[in-house]
């Protein structure tokens, strides 16, 4: 996963400060400044700072926006812990 330091338009290939195999990655949708996009396919745990920051609730392809629409938190989830549920 990478973070966009400026807004990246869909279809462009930004400079990526990362491993060699992702240098030519094309983002498939607009990535607003400060938002994340996938460098590799993501399925399951989402890692940033070397730690788990959440779980992808569907497979995310390289170049896709990674955010609240496809990643869920594992903490403070009262919706998953309703009494009697």
């Amino acid at each position: 996963m990478a973070t966009a330091l400026a807004t990246i338009p869909a279809g462009s290939c930004p400079y990526i400060d990362g491993p060699a195999e992702v240098k030519d990655l094309k983002v498939v949708e607009d990535i607003p400044m400060g938002h994340k996009f996938a460098l590799r396919p993501i399925d399951g745990e989402v890692i940033k700072y070397g730690e788990v920051i959440g779980v992808a609730d569907r497979p995310i392809a390289p170049g896709e926006h990674v955010h609240v629409h496809n990643v869920k938190s594992r903490r403070g989830r009262g919706d998953l812990h309703k009494e009697g549920a």
Partner: peptide, 19 residues
């Protein structure tokens, strides 16, 4: 889900996805 309380809508707009 406490999301929107923490992280706040502003945090989310700024790119933070989860607490």
């Amino acid at each position: 889900d406490m999301r929107e309380g923490q992280p706040t809508p502003g945090n989310i707009k700024g790119g933070l996805t989860t607490i």
